[in-house]
Amino acid sequence: MTKFDFTLCLLGTVLAVICSLALWRLAFLSTDLAYLALLPLGLMVAIGAYKNAIDRRRALLSATLQSTSPLQPIARGRLFTAFTATSVAVFCIAALGYKSLFAGLEELVAAIAIIGISVASYALGLRWFARDVVETSLSWFSAKFAFLVTCVVSIFPYIWIEMAFVTRLGAIDADFNEAIGVSLARLPARNSLLDEIVSIIIFLDTVRLWVVARFDSAAIWIIYGIYAALICTVIATTAISIATLYHSHIVPTRKRPLDQAGEPE
């Protein structure tokens, strides 16, 4: 990936995530159709995740089965891989969608930083491993590398940001039922399916905060650590999937006209 491609990929990934989540956040309070703002982002994540997963599966099959084996068509697993990639996309979009509804400036800056680390690590992986990894496996290998680097680098700083800067509801120190009631009161009174889904996530997150507020021990670090790992994993997966989409589907189509223009007539 060239510097120009890296810049476009980074800017495109940041804009895709931020714009989609911003539209979702703005529309959520007024309409049940707000989820439509998340569909393009989910589609990009699903395509990128599918690309890496299917390439990894093909690499495993090529190292395991003979090219003439009748098991090759059966073991490709395209349907299962597509289902897995779609599930990953749905989970990432659901987590990001909820997180963005009540996120503050600190969490926005942290998310952009994690996206930057993810895309940069993926681009470095493409360059560093190009000599040692076959081209068909380069993308998913670099994606694994980027995911590992991003999680290792981001989790502990994100724990610190969550504990030091993120504002909590005052009612989180109150009675359990009161804390749940205050949290759910932030939802619009529509009683729709979308609100029911979001209310379940709010309930689970409020339980987490309510429990943390009553501990003063290593349990706080464990709970925050699990939560930070989840958020960093979701953001990293989203960013790396979009970067994979750009590298695998956009860069080749952008270069093809240039290659054809350079061919002698």
Rank of each mutant, 00 (worst) to 15 (best):
R127E: 14
E107K: 07
V88N: 03
A34N: 09
V88C: 03
I202N: 03
A236Q: 06
C19Y: 13
G116K: 01
L209C: 04
R76N: 09
F6E: 06
L230G: 06
L230M: 12
M1Q: 06
A103K: 01
A53F: 07
V119S: 07
V133W: 06
C232V: 15
F4R: 11
F145L: 12
W221C: 07
T13M: 04
I250Y: 11
L8I: 04
T233L: 13
A179C: 07
V90G: 01
V166F: 02
L15S: 09
S121N: 10
Y35A: 15
I172W: 01
K144I: 04
L169D: 15
L33E: 02
D55N: 08
R186S: 00
I159K: 09
S142P: 02
L61A: 00
G97L: 00
R127Q: 15
Y50E: 05
D195E: 13
I223P: 00
V198G: 00
P40C: 10
L258S: 03
L245R: 01
F165I: 10
L60Q: 10
K255M: 13
P73R: 05
Y246P: 02
A261E: 08
L79Q: 11
Y158I: 03
A85H: 11
A218K: 03
A16S: 13
L169P: 02
A89G: 05
V211M: 11
I222E: 00
T68L: 05
L15Q: 02
A53N: 06
L204H: 08
T167C: 05
D195T: 11
L10S: 09
L26V: 12
A75I: 04
I226A: 14
L29T: 12
L187V: 08
D173E: 15
P73C: 04
Q260M: 10
L169K: 14
I226L: 15
T7D: 09
Y246H: 13
G170P: 08
A236L: 05
L108Q: 07
V153Q: 01
G170Q: 12
S67I: 04
E106R: 06
C151F: 09
L138S: 04
G262M: 14
S139M: 12
R254T: 03
F215E: 14
T64R: 06
T167W: 09
V90Q: 06
A75H: 04
L204N: 11
T237R: 12
E135C: 07
C151P: 01
R168M: 14
R58W: 05
I200F: 12
S137E: 12
S217H: 03
R168Q: 15
A46L: 07
R214L: 07
V14N: 02
L148C: 11
Y246M: 11
I242C: 07
P157G: 10
A103S: 10
V45D: 09
L148Y: 09
P257Q: 00
I240A: 06
A63C: 04
